[in-house]
Simulated assay, not measured.
Amino acid sequence: MAYQPRAPNERNGDESDSTRRLYNPYQDLQIPAQTLYKLPTSPEYLFPEESRAQRRSWGENLTYYTGVGYLAGSSAGAAKGFVSGVKSIESTDTMKLKINRVLNGSGHTGRQIGNRCGVIGLLYAGLESGMVAYRDTDDVINSVVAGLGTGVLYKAAAGPRSAAVAGAIGGMLVGIAVTGKQALKRYVPI
């Protein structure tokens, strides 16, 4: 059914052989292919409570923040490692050795910073989801407290002073990010 000879004047831009045509599985049906499958246009939920919540679930939140943290950290680390690899090249190095230094620097530093940022994203997502479940509301306070707690937990082993500073930095960064997001929603037309 897929192989039918064609008239010499028929042409198809995707094919190089004029004796072949693309197979259409719906050609013998007398209905348009678009009405064959009626797919929903909005997400489907098992329970009505899920549809009322306008946020990601805790599992999606965990996956999202951990993945974004790891990707951003490994990209920034790879760029930093690339620069340090280029700086470590000596004049007597062969081309293979130069490439090896750059790749090793990018991979090593990217992996280190990516893992750190991934752990920070994991802590933040867990704390934010815990705050939403505990307070039963989703607002700015949850995000800021989660940022503060993330900084404290991340630097807890370095001592109380380092943990307090890191907590303050985490809370401020999240506060700035949330405020910037709200300002963008309000003042930037979509």
Score class of each variant (00 low, 15 high):
residue 35 T to Q: 12
residue 35 T to S: 14
residue 36 L to K: 10
residue 38 K to D: 10
residue 39 L to M: 03
residue 40 P to F: 07
residue 40 P to I: 02
residue 41 T to V: 07
residue 42 S to E: 10
residue 43 P to R: 06
residue 44 E to C: 01
residue 45 Y to K: 04
residue 45 Y to W: 12
residue 47 F to L: 11
residue 48 P to F: 03
residue 49 E to D: 14
residue 50 E to R: 05
residue 52 R to H: 14
residue 56 R to S: 09
residue 56 R to N: 07
residue 56 R to M: 14
residue 58 W to S: 11
residue 59 G to T: 06
residue 61 N to Q: 14
residue 61 N to E: 14
residue 61 N to D: 13
residue 62 L to F: 14
residue 64 Y to M: 12
residue 66 T to C: 12
residue 67 G to Y: 03
residue 67 G to S: 15
residue 68 V to A: 02
residue 68 V to W: 01
residue 70 Y to L: 12
residue 70 Y to G: 15
residue 70 Y to A: 13
residue 70 Y to Q: 03
residue 74 S to A: 13
residue 78 A to W: 02
residue 79 A to H: 06
residue 80 K to L: 11
residue 81 G to F: 07
residue 82 F to P: 05
residue 82 F to S: 09
residue 83 V to A: 07
residue 86 V to K: 08
residue 86 V to T: 05
residue 86 V to L: 11
residue 87 K to N: 15
residue 89 I to Y: 02
residue 90 E to G: 14
residue 91 S to H: 13
residue 97 L to F: 12
residue 100 N to T: 07
residue 100 N to S: 15
residue 100 N to H: 13
residue 101 R to K: 15
residue 102 V to A: 10
residue 102 V to F: 12
residue 102 V to K: 10
residue 103 L to H: 14
residue 104 N to M: 10
residue 105 G to A: 09
residue 105 G to H: 14
residue 105 G to Y: 13
residue 106 S to P: 09
residue 107 G to W: 06
residue 107 G to E: 01
residue 107 G to I: 06
residue 108 H to Y: 11
residue 110 G to Y: 10
residue 111 R to M: 13
residue 112 Q to V: 10
residue 112 Q to S: 10
residue 113 I to M: 14
residue 115 N to K: 11
residue 116 R to E: 11
residue 116 R to S: 13
residue 117 C to V: 05
residue 118 G to N: 05
residue 119 V to S: 07
residue 120 I to E: 05
residue 123 L to V: 07
residue 124 Y to P: 03
residue 125 A to F: 03
residue 126 G to Q: 09
residue 127 L to M: 14
residue 129 S to I: 00
residue 131 M to L: 13
residue 131 M to K: 04
residue 133 A to D: 08
residue 134 Y to K: 12
residue 135 R to T: 09
residue 135 R to A: 09
residue 136 D to W: 04
residue 136 D to A: 12
residue 139 D to K: 09
residue 140 V to S: 02
residue 140 V to K: 05
residue 140 V to G: 02
residue 142 N to Q: 08
residue 142 N to W: 03
residue 144 V to C: 08
residue 144 V to D: 07
residue 145 V to D: 02
residue 145 V to W: 08
residue 146 A to W: 06
residue 147 G to Q: 01
residue 148 L to C: 12
residue 149 G to Q: 00
residue 150 T to S: 04
residue 150 T to R: 00
residue 151 G to S: 02
residue 151 G to V: 00
residue 154 Y to N: 03
residue 155 K to N: 03
residue 156 A to S: 15
residue 156 A to L: 10
residue 157 A to D: 05
residue 157 A to W: 07
residue 159 G to T: 04
residue 159 G to M: 06
residue 160 P to E: 01
residue 161 R to Q: 11
residue 163 A to K: 00
